[in-house]
Design a protein around this nucleic acid. Structure first.
Lengths: 189, 189
DNA sequence: TGTACATCAGTGAACGCGCGTTCACTGATGTAC
DNA sequence: TGTACATCAGTGAACGCGCGTTCACTGATGTAC
């Protein structure tokens, strides 16, 4: 049952989005092709009509997830009052909702240690995503010269990532909430 | 070829140490029982004479790894001049050597996102390890009241974890080095 | 202390399962005339 | 525009492999007398 070109393209995109969510929810290694295709409403056999390998969809879905995050941050920044953009981003990123919903969360936070062991292309996509987000955040630090702003933004972003990563591990949810709150206070000052 | 009680205990410890290193090097999901037993100089079949399951050794080896890290931090703190303990810890934790040698590194940094998906007991061991390390670091912040010192220490530690996690992902080693350096400067000030 | 038997650490083959990938097949879409 | 054929998205069975776990076996250690 061949599909039209448009349907094929839409299906590919649907698989990609399902993958970006499933990988963030369950991890890259623990998410099988069958699981990810089922999340897109298909059976596993058709996967290879759209992607060459699991490696390829990992790479593309990480790139998609970082682009989504960048878009979300941009929209938070542009809808906030002047001078309050960063605060809005922090409030969103370090919120209880993001803590719970890995599948829509920051791929650096949900997949960090797995990405460090991924192949060159995946790590390259991740690095580029990180740099793009650093640039966005640095744009908000207009009281600093550009180079210093980038350095500061880089530290801020990795601080946020460390906080959400650890908060997701803790068995004590008070501790999680406290870490997110204190991190926000620390970065906002 | 039964072994003496002492030999058996030593072997168990050797397997545990090998596991703590292999899990940090290659990840929990990607490290097989056979691989970990080989690293301890044994074959896979004997594993179940010492541990009930992979889950059990994961839990015990995470606890071991966090204790090792705590010991390393304590030793850095006690050998540094008064008031320079934190700086010594930061210099060590955020060093190029730790960046390279995952197998001896901080289990939070090398395994963070995998730990978040682990079972309750593993997450419990991780949470306890984190709190123990926070207490150590808070002890150095003697210009703050105890509660504030704990909060500050908690943010500091998760900042360090975020930085080493991201630095291990980047394909651009200048970026990694820069992130570690800026994080150190940020935390020392 | 010496002896006979029970215990058990370690080995390597085997089991069952899940995973990434391949393949033959189906039938709707795309294309050439 | 209509027709005949080629293409190919999607299905589900199958393959090969690696993994966690089990098991029969070996021979050295532990224990009871």
């Amino acid at each position: 049952m061949r599909k039209s070109r448009q349907e094929t393209a839409e299906t590919r995109q649907r698989i990609l989005e399902a993958a970006a969510a499933e990988f963030r929810r369950s991890g890259i290694g623990s998410t099988g092709i069958a699981e990810l295709m089922a999340a897109a409403g298909l059976t596993h056999g058709g996967f290879y009509k759209h992607f060459e390998s699991k490696d390829q969809i990992v790479e593309e879905s990480i790139a998609l997830a970082t682009r989504s995050l960048a878009t979300a941050i941009e929209s938070k920044l542009s809808s906030a009052k002047a001078g309050h953009g960063l605060n809005a981003v922090l409030k969103d990123y370090l919120s209880a909702e993001r803590l719970e919903h890995c599948e829509e969360g920051c791929p650096f936070g949900t997949l960090g240690s797995e990405l460090a062991r991924s192949n060159e292309r995946v790590r390259q996509a991740t690095t580029e995503g990180f740099v793009a987000m650093v640039t966005l955040i640095a744009g908000q630090l207009d009281d600093l010269p550009p180079v210093a702003a980038k350095k500061q933004a880089m530290v801020m972003l990795s601080t946020m990532i460390g906080a959400i990563t650890m908060a997701r591990i803790f068995t004590d949810s008070d501790l999680s909430v406290s870490l997110l709150r204190e991190t926000r206070k620390h970065l906002v000052k």
